[in-house]
Design a protein around this nucleic acid. Structure first.
Length: 473
RNA sequence: GGUCCCAUCGUCUAGUGGUUAGGAUACCGGCCUCUCACGCCGGCGGCAUGGGUUCGAAUCCCAUUGGGACCGCCA
């Protein structure tokens, strides 16, 4: 292969399920590799199995890839629309004597297979029709003529040299009796046609590769480079499936994860760059390489994703976060929320939130005039002892012209000094008055965000509350 | 069963013959401090086992064990 050749990669999911993190990572590696090398990334939908393929899954996959920011340069190309092309390839193989019609009865074959398994032999087609020179017939399939001797080998970028004795290979079916091409044929035909020169896919295809190389050879096509990435395993170390942890990628969106965080986590599962753990998408493109992908399978670590998400939230711009946060706040029933509101909230909440869901929940103190006191908070901090202090503080704050953190701090310094107390002694009471809770962002930044009107209102309400409580006792 | 692949803290990983085996996460302490968080400091915890090769193996070789994948008219 010459050096000027442009990299062309593809992600080729079959729409028989939603996109989960395994597929997403395969897509990511293909995308990163193409971007890194200024190449092309193609999206191809492998929907030759009409029974299992569903339109809703196509849509899910596309939406998930878009959300992750893995934009493709070509496609989506649907295999179901290219049947004529596959048939022309099959006809060519037939004509050149590299494939043949097989009339064997499927049930009989199945029986033989089971018997072979029972005897401890490898289940394989006995090649009965291989040299019979049969023609098309109802129920007939087309098989590839695999070489009988020798070895098929290739160098995988990640796994190294892989070789398989040809005796192990079968004359696999390339066209079903209904005339549709099988997976192996369609994949190879498409990859040749689309000029795919780097095939980056899951480890589960490692055993398929020799079978596909045989098709390449029969077609006299140049064989692409392969990179088989190790699988992502479930917590029980078995292949990731819907049952454990293999959530749809779009669920992470709903749970308040940033796509950048998921991309970061997925990239670091299998790929590494020294001791660096946290990457922006730009950094990943710059630093990604297939040589640094590990060989062993890994388990997806949700804790790490959470940490990464917190980091990406902390390091995102307020504007971006505000935009992303709005729908989450609305989901909590605050319909009147604006991006203006959230941008202020985000600035004080981004260091304290691991997800957008959490951030939305923490935003709630801002909305409405009244706050609801948590029972223990009210009992422990809204006490008669702080009544005079709160009254005086409210007076002082009411007189403030501009309501910035600086001004507030100045007022507090004077206030604390006059009363000979530490901030510590009154902070929690103020916090409860303003938020109803014992945990919140810093007092001054929070007051600035709330604005003078709400701060004074809530302080006065707390004072009234204490008075009322005192009288009742 | 056959073939192929894999094996460092619980998890993700760095490491390519000489390191007190490093980082991240989680967990536990401490500092900072108006609470929480952030940040900072410290701790816990690992080379699957057995043989070689070598002056010297996490690193190279073999075996064992364990795990995974594939063996479809699914992809």
């Amino acid at each position: 292969m010459n050096k000027s050749e442009n990299v062309v990669t593809r992600f080729a999911p079959s729409p028989t399920g939603y996109l989960h993190i395994g597929g997403a990572r395969t897509a990511l590696f293909n995308w990163l590799f193409a971007r890194k090398n200024k190449g092309k990334f193609i999206l191809r939908i492998e929907d030759t199995d009409r029974q299992r393929s569903k339109q809703e899954y196509v849509e899910d996959i596309i939406e998930a890839l878009r959300w992750l920011g893995l934009h493709w340069d070509e496609g989506p190309i649907f295999q179901s629309q290219r049947l004529d092309y596959y048939n022309s390839i099959i006809e060519r193989l037939l004509k050149e004597g590299k494939a043949y019609y097989c009339h064997c009865d499927p049930e009989e074959l199945e029986k033989k297979k089971k018997e072979a398994m029972a005897r401890g032999e490898k289940p394989r087609y006995d090649r009965k029709c291989r040299d019979l020179g049969l023609g098309p017939a109802p129920g007939a399939v087309v098989r590839i003529k695999a070489p009988l001797i020798g070895i098929t080998q290739f160098k995988d970028i990640i796994k190294g040299n892989i070789s398989v004795p040809n005796e192990e290979l079968d004359d696999i079916i390339i066209r079903r009796s209904d005339g549709t091409p099988t997976f192996h044929l369609a994949v190879v035909a498409d990859d040749i046609d689309m000029g795919i020169n780097y095939i980056i896919r899951g480890d589960d295809h490692l055993n398929n590769t020799p079978k596909q190389i045989i098709i390449y050879q029969a077609l006299n096509a140049s064989i692409p480079k392969y990179a088989h990435i190790p699988l992502i395993l479930g917590p029980d170390r078995s292949r990731l499936s819907k049952r454990h942890g293999a959530m749809p990628v779009l669920n992470y969106k709903e749970m308040g994860y940033l796509p950048e965080a998921l991309v970061n986590a997925l990239a670091r599962l299998g790929w590494s760059y020294g001791n660096q753990e946290r990457f922006t998408v730009e950094e990943l493109i710059e630093k990604f390489s297939l040589e640094r992908v590990g060989k062993s399978p890994g388990i997806f670590n949700a804790e790490k994703l959470l940490d990464l998400n917190a980091w990406h939230i902390r390091n995102s711009s307020d504007e971006y976060l505000a935009k992303e946060l709005v729908p989450f706040i609305k989901k909590l029933g605050i319909q009147e929320v604006t991006e203006q509101d959230t941008i202020k909230l985000v600035s004080i909440l981004k260091k304290r939130s691991k997800t957008l869901v959490e951030m939305a929940e923490k935003s709630l103190f801002y909305f409405g005039m009244d706050v609801e006191y948590e029972e223990d908070a009210e009992k422990n901090y809204l006490t008669p002892q702080v009544l005079a202090l709160l009254s005086d503080l409210t007076d002082r704050i009411s007189k403030l012209e501009s309501f910035g953190q600086k001004n507030l701090e100045e007022v507090f310094i004077k206030f604390l000094d006059d009363h000979k107390i530490k901030l510590k002694e009154i902070a929690q009471a103020i916090r409860v008055a303003l938020t109803g809770k014992t945990v919140s962002p810093g007092l001054f930044e929070m007051m600035e965000v709330l604005g003078k009107e709400k701060v004074v209102y809530r302080l006065k309400r707390a004072i009234e509350h204490i008075k009322r409580k005192t009288v009742m006792e």
